[in-house]
Write a protein that binds this DNA or RNA. Structure first.
Lengths: 341, 341
DNA sequence: AGTGTCAAGCGAAACGTTACGATATGGAGT
DNA sequence: ACTCCATATCGTAACGTTTCGCTTGACACT
């Protein structure tokens, strides 16, 4: 049964018969220590079950080896994957992760930021919420930060995200390729960069195919199940309804499914359905759901890598912002098919 | 544009023309300060955009106002809900959360624990992984800890979880009530307390109904999609197959669905299907999935509350372990029905 | 022998806070 | 006028590290 571990570097030093500086040198391998002393120190550390106090170390060095991650809603299955990958990379590099959930509330987001500043984190990974003031708040500080997935309107920031314009394009082209001409889009909250960009991709693809974009086939704004249900129902009841509907968010998509079921319309024979964000269970739906998949793990890992680069690189390197963009992938399943007739 | 905020208590004190002790007193409201001085201090803090250094404070006070949360897999949708609720409660109480994902790997779990100890967190919330040594590791330290959802075999620990025996009972009774006599169970990894307990609940309910428990209808061990698929397929190909199958884990359940589809068997006419853990999309499956729902948010919140009690209560109070058990809830949907004939 | 070089080790001063004992200040009670 | 107390304020010693400059020996070269 080892010690109660209430022990400090001084205890180790005393037991080993050396000074605390030597213990520190052994721990950090910062200067050479003779082998026999090194062994004495290591033995003492072992015997006392010594563990360096990260707090004291941070106070002295000014570095905490901790980063903050703020997401708008950890319950949204996309973020856990990002977080996991980032945390994995962080842990490999000896960093810990302080997790904050802003609940899509910019005031809470600000409070989280303050807390992180106060804790002197070395850097921040942020998927910002609607109406976020984070960009200004961060620019006042000297804390390295990388915006992930949800980007602020401002430009001079470091970012990692999916190429959502391409994603919107890809999805639309898939449907056009199947023969669809009337495509509906529940675009979500266009103040959020992913939703905004997907809409843009949609527009681009439609234009390139010389297809008109009808107001009745476009819905922006809220992103809950009921919103999707209402919007899809409205579209499907039009005199000339769309033959395919895309939803920029999972809950909206569920709403579309429900609206189709209600009529009832068969998927994909009567209406094709496509979602953004691919989840494990999409494959097991009946019919299985065609979806755009984002490389969440890559995004998470890359975010941390960029952040670490900012943290440990020279301060000058922070002047021109870093960017990483990943392509989205289309997973074709059974919920999309050729339109009737 | 405020200051660069490289400022310390001394800067504030100098500007306000008081001593650092007074500034500290104002911040912590630990001793009375005359109104006019208090105002001077507050103004100075404002002017310098001062933010207390949590690191220095922690070093001095021995408290970090941070807790650690370790989960086996944040990608499992149950945990984000727990985490969110716990984090919410923590943030309300002025605590930050250090998040760790053990990837179901006990060595990584140990490393995370060490890191948390080193960072001197005030307490730890832990959903332990298979073969966890966390209980021993924690018992050596004086760090308050609460085990959440996944409990270690040992008894003298603080715990918060669903009543999984009742959950297993409830699910089984539901099927028995519908007229099922031959019920299959993919019980998952019985070394994990939730899975173990659900199996026990199943046994109890079957016994009370005087129904036999057949080995061929019981599968334990792995918990991946393929495992569920193989096991369900095997059961459904038996000369006398079960008329209902329950799965203790979402991936297993997906395997069951796939196996049924393959035959093909209709759900619920040919075979009823029931899952543990209720997710948003269960309702939107076709057919919608009957499931046991755990009160994840309540569990998360309560976990933090108990932990805080341990942290701020007298050390003596830590002797007899705290427990909180929440009832599970059955959500009856379309995937379960009366057996044929 | 005297000098210079170098590595290994040490002591002490920070880092930014809090907490504690000590010191002023100003009435009220005698 | 004197003590006595309560109240407000301050100086300073920690907390457990790292870092920096200094000392010490050992050793090689004149």
């Amino acid at each position: 049964m080892p010690e109660q571990s209430k022990c400090t570097m001084r205890d180790v030093a005393r037991l080993a018969g050396v000074s605390t500086s030597t213990v520190s040198a052994v721990i950090n391998e910062t200067v050479a220590v003779s082998p026999q002393r090194k062994i004495r120190v290591l033995r003492a550390m072992e015997a006392l079950d010594y563990e360096p106090d990260a707090i004291a170390r941070s106070l002295k060095t000014g570095r905490t080896n901790a980063i903050g991650i703020i997401v708008p809603d950890i319950t949204n299955a996309f973020y856990p994957e990002v977080i996991r990958a980032a945390e994995e990379a962080a842990q490999e590099a000896g960093y810990s992760v302080l997790l904050c959930d802003s609940s899509e509330d910019s005031n809470l987001e600000e409070r989280h930021l303050s807390a992180l500043f106060s804790r002197r984190v070395d850097g921040i990974l942020l998927a910002c919420c609607v109406n976020s003031r984070a960009q200004q708040t961060l620019s006042r500080r000297r804390v390295p930060a990388v915006f992930v997935d949800r980007l602020p309107p401002a430009s001079m920031v470091n970012t990692v995200c999916t190429d959502n314009v391409q994603a919107g394009c890809l999805a639309t082209e898939h449907l056009i390729g199947l023969g669809h001409k009337r495509i509906g889009l529940l675009a979500g909250h266009t103040a959020l960069s992913p939703h905004h960009d997907r809409l843009e991709g949609f527009r681009k693809a439609m234009q390139e195919a010389h297809l008109p974009i009808l107001d009745e086939y476009l819905m922006t704004g809220d992103v809950q199940f009921e919103d999707g249900f209402d919007a899809a129902r409205r579209m499907l009841h039009l005199p000339v309804p769309p033959t395919a509907i895309m939803a920029s968010n999972n809950k909206l998509l569920m709403g579309v499914l429900r609206a189709a079921e209600e009529q009832p319309l068969r998927i994909p024979q009567d209406v094709s359905v496509l979602g953004f964000d691919d989840y494990l269970w999409n494959e097991h739906f009946n019919p299985s759901l065609t979806a755009i998949a984002q490389p969440a793990r890559q995004i998470g890992r890359k975010s941390f890598e960029l952040l670490q680069q900012l943290i440990s690189g020279p301060a000058a390197a922070r002047d021109s912002p870093l960017h990483a963009v990943f392509p989205a992938e289309l997973r074709v399943r059974r919920s999309t098919g050729a339109p009737r007739g």
